[in-house]
Design a protein around this nucleic acid. Structure first.
Length: 628
DNA sequence: TACTATTTAATTTTT
DNA sequence: TTAAATAGTA
C-alpha cells in the first residue's frame, strides 16, 4: 500500500524498509551523533520503546513524559529517530503499519476506495492484534462492515510484542450485534491431551473460558521423563524418535518444542550423531545474514550514494585501511554540514586526511563509482554478480576458517541466483534493482530446496503456534526456563507463559512427551532446577512417569533426599557449599544453590528460591539452613 | 590501522 | 558457551 500511495503517505518513492537489525544500528549511530552514553541509554531499550509506542499508534508528540526525565529523554530520542528515518526515506516494520493506518485515516478518498474494494474482512489469530492493527480493522470496516475474526484468548502469547487480547472484548462493543461462536469441539488431539491442556490453562484467572472436548479416542498418557541433564534429555528424545521412525512414521510428523532457541543446540548435536535429518525453524532468515546484508549494502550504495547505513556497514569491509578514526572524521563532517557520509567522505579525503588514509577513502569511492558504471546496463543478476565480485567479499569470507566461511560464500552465490529468479512487478514504478532491494527486507527467503525433505521439526513453542504434529516433545520443562525466570515474578507474565504451555500441549495430536532436566548447563554454568510447575498442573491420571534406564550412570530417579547426594554436582568447597544443595531461608523459603563467589566473610551465594526467585545473598548474613 | 585479548551479557518474533 | 563489543598491542 505504501509503495502504491507513497505520495499520500509522505514518503519518497524509493523509500527503504529496514529490519530490526538495521534499526538497532541506526539507533546506535544516533546515540553516537548526539554524544549520548550508550551504557546509560541502552540501544536495545530505546528500540523497544520506539517500537512499543509505534505498536500503540503513538507518535512522539502524542506521548506524555509524565514528568519523568528518563521517559522524556526516550521520547526525544524517538523524535530524533523519526527525523532521521524521514530524512533518509527509511521505514521500519512498526512504521509500515502506523504509516498505512495514518494514510487511510487522513485520506477520505483512499479510505472509501478500500472500503468499497474489501467488503468482507477476515482476521485470523485475532488475539495477536496490536492497537494499530485493531485501529486499522475498525477504519477499514467502517460503520457498515462486519468483520469476521477468529482467535483464541488462551493462545495469546505475544503480549510482549504489543498484542492485546482485550480486543476480543472490545470487538463486541465496537461492532454491536456481534455473534460469538465458541468452538470447543476439537478434532486434533486425543482426549488425554485435551484434558491436560484444559487443566493447565484453568489455572489462569483472566480468560473468557472454554473447555475443549473431543469425540475421538482417549489416547495414550502423556509421558514425563526426568533427565539427569540436558544431554540425557536429548538422548531420551532421540531414542523415542528412533522408535517412532522405525515404526514407519514420518520424521516430519514429529516435533521437538522448546522455550528458547539456545536449547536447540544440544538436541541438534544429538540428532546429528544419530543421523536423523532435522530442520530448525527460526533463527536468521536468508536476507538477515550478515554476508547478504553486506552485499546488499554495496548494491544499495551503487543505487543511492547517500544511504548512510549501507555506507557505514561496508566502508571498511573487507578491510581497506579506513579505520574508526577516519570514519569518525566523516561522521563529524556529515553532522556539521548536514550531508550524507558519502559527501563527507569526499570532502574529508580532499581536505583533512593524510596521504594514506585519503588514498584509501578515494579508492573506496572510486570502487563504488566503478561498480555503478560497470553494472549500468546489465540485468539484475549481472549487477548482483558483478558487484559481489568487485567488492571482494568472497575473498574476505573465504579467509574465515572452517565451515562458517564456506556457508557465507555459498550464501553469496545464492544471492546471485535469487536475483536471477527475481521477477520485477511491471506495475511498480521503479528500477528492478531498487525493487529487489526493497523486497529483500520483507522476504523471508527460505532455503526452500530441502524444506520438504522428511525431517524432524525443531522450533520454539512460539513458532509452533498454528501447527500440529502427531508426535510432540516439550523439552526443558523446568522452572526458571519454562516458565522463564523473567516472567515468574509478574502474574501477567506467568499467565502468558502458561498460555504458551497450553499452546505447546495442544500441538500434539496423538503422543506427547514432556521432559525436564535436573541439571542444565546454561550460559556455561550449571543450573539446578525443579520440574516446571506446569507439569504439576496436569492431573496425574494423564501422566505416565518414565524411569531412567538402569544402565545410565545414575540410580533410579531418586526421592528428593538421595537425589542431591548422588548428583555429581560439584564437590563441597571450603565454605561447605555444594552447587545444587538445597537450603532454607527463613524469609524466602526453600531453594537450591546455583552459584557462589568470594571468600570468608565476603562470600556470596546465589540461590534459586522456589517462590521468591533467584537471589544473591551474603553467606555470613543469610543464616541459611542446609536441607538434605 | 589491523589484529588479538578480554569483557560482557545473553526470552519468546512477525512483518 | 558463545558471539559480539571493546580494550590493548604490534
Amino acid at each position: 500500500m505504501l509503495r502504491r500511495h507513497w505520495r499520500e503517505a509522505g514518503l519518497p518513492q524509493n523509500f527503504q524498509i529496514i529490519d530490526s537489525d538495521d534499526q538497532l544500528r541506526l539507533i546506535k549511530r544516533l546515540l553516537k551523533n548526539l554524544e549520548i552514553d550508550d551504557s546509560r541509554w541502552v540501544p536495545k531499550e530505546i528500540q523497544w520503546f520506539i517500537n512499543g509506542q509505534k505498536d500503540e499508534g503513538l507518535r512522539p508528540q502524542h506521548i506524555d513524559a509524565e514528568g519523568d526525565p528518563h521517559r522524556r529523554q526516550l521520547i526525544s530520542l524517538y523524535q530524533s529517530y523519526e527525523e532521521i528515518c524521514q530524512r533518509g526515506g527509511l521505514v521500519d516494520f512498526a512504521e509500515l503499519l502506523l504509516r498505512a493506518h495514518e494514510l487511510l485515516r487522513d485520506n477520505t478518498e483512499l479510505l472509501q476506495h478500500y472500503r468499497r474494494r474489501f467488503q468482507h474482512l477476515l482476521v485470523d489469530e485475532f488475539q495477536d492484534t496490536n492497537a494499530i492493527q485493531y485501529a486499522w480493522l475498525r477504519l477499514l470496516a467502517g460503520d457498515k462492515g462486519v468483520p469476521f475474526v477468529v482467535g483464541d484468548d488462551d493462545q495469546s502469547i505475544y503480549r510482549w510484542r504489543g498484542a492485546r487480547v482485550e480486543h476480543i472484548h472490545q470487538f463486541q462493543k465496537d461492532f454491536p450485534g456481534t455473534r460469538v461462536v465458541k468452538l470447543e469441539q476439537n478434532y486434533r488431539s486425543t482426549e488425554t491431551i485435551l484434558n491436560a491442556a484444559n487443566a493447565v490453562i484453568a489455572n489462569n484467572r483472566s480468560r473468557m473460558g472454554k473447555n475443549l472436548w473431543t469425540e475421538g479416542a482417549e489416547g495414550e498418557p502423556i509421558r514425563v521423563y526426568s533427565a539427569y541433564n540436558e544431554r540425557d534429555e536429548a538422548d531420551f528424545v532421540i531414542g523415542r524418535l528412533r522408535g517412532w521412525i522405525e515404526q514407519g512414521n514420518a520424521r516430519a510428523d514429529a516435533a521437538i518444542l522448546y522455550r528458547s532457541n539456545a536449547q536447540s543446540r544440544v538436541l541438534e548435536e544429538g540428532l546429528m550423531n544419530a543421523q536423523i535429518p532435522y530442520r530448525v525453524y527460526g533463527g536468521l532468515r536468508f536476507f538477515e545474514r550478515a554476508e547478504i546484508k553486506d552485499a546488499l549494502a554495496y548494491l544499495r550504495l551503487t543505487s543511492n550514494r547517500d544511504d548512510d547505513g549501507s555506507f557505514e556497514r561496508i566502508v571498511n569491509k573487507p578491510t581497506r585501511g579506513i579505520g574508526a578514526r577516519t570514519v569518525e572524521m566523516m561522521r563529524a563532517y556529515a553532522r556539521a554540514n548536514t550531508c550524507s557520509l558519502w559527501r563527507a567522505a569526499g570532502a574529508v579525503a580532499r581536505d583533512d586526511l593524510n596521504g594514506r588514509a585519503a588514498n584509501a577513502v578515494n579508492s573506496f569511492m572510486s570502487l563504488i563509482e566503478r561498480m555503478a558504471r560497470e553494472t549500468n546496463g546489465l540485468d539484475l543478476r549481472g549487477k548482483v554478480d558483478h558487484v559481489i565480485h568487485l567488492s571482494m567479499l568472497i575473498d574476505f569470507f573465504e579467509k574465515d576458517k572452517g565451515e562458517k566461511g564456506e556457508t557465507r560464500v555459498e550464501n553469496l552465490a545464492e544471492l546471485v541466483s535469487a536475483a536471477k529468479g527475481f521477477e520485477p512487478d511491471p506495475a511498480e514504478d521503479m528500477s528492478p534493482l531498487d525493487e529487489f532491494l526493497s523486497h529483500a527486507a520483507l522476504e523471508a527467503g527460505e532455503g526452500q530446496a530441502d524444506a520438504w525433505e522428511d525431517c524432524v521439526q525443531l522450533m520454539t513453542m512460539h513458532s509452533a503456534k498454528g501447527l500440529e504434529f502427531p508426535l510432540v516433545f516439550m523439552c526443558g520443562m523446568e522452572d526458571g526456563l519454562f516458565p522463564h525466570q523473567r516472567s515468574v515474578a509478574d502474574p501477567n507474565g506467568l499467565e502468558e507463559e502458561r498460555r504458551l504451555c497450553y499452546v505447546g500441549i495442544t500441538r500434539a495430536m496423538q503422543l506427547l512427551y514432556i521432559t525436564h532436566a535436573e541439571q542444565r548447563r546454561l550460559h556455561g554454568m550449571d543450573n539446578y532446577s525443579q520440574p516446571s510447575r506446569f507439569i504439576a498442573e496436569i492431573p496425574t491420571e494423564h501422566i505416565e512417569e518414565i524411569r531412567p534406564r538402569v544402565q545410565v550412570a545414575r540410580p533410579m530417579r531418586p526421592s528428593r533426599s538421595t537425589l542431591r547426594k548422588t548428583s555429581t554436582a560439584g564437590a563441597e568447597n571450603e565454605l561447605g557449599i555444594r552447587l545444587g544443595q538445597r537450603v532454607r531461608h527463613k524469609k524466602f523459603g526453600d531453594g537450591v544453590i546455583l552459584n557462589y563467589e568470594g571468600q570468608g566473610a565476603h562470600a556470596r551465594i546465589e540461590v534459586n528460591f522456589e517462590t521468591a526467585g533467584t537471589k544473591w545473598l551474603v553467606l555470613s548474613y543469610a543464616n541459611l539452613e542446609m536441607v538434605s
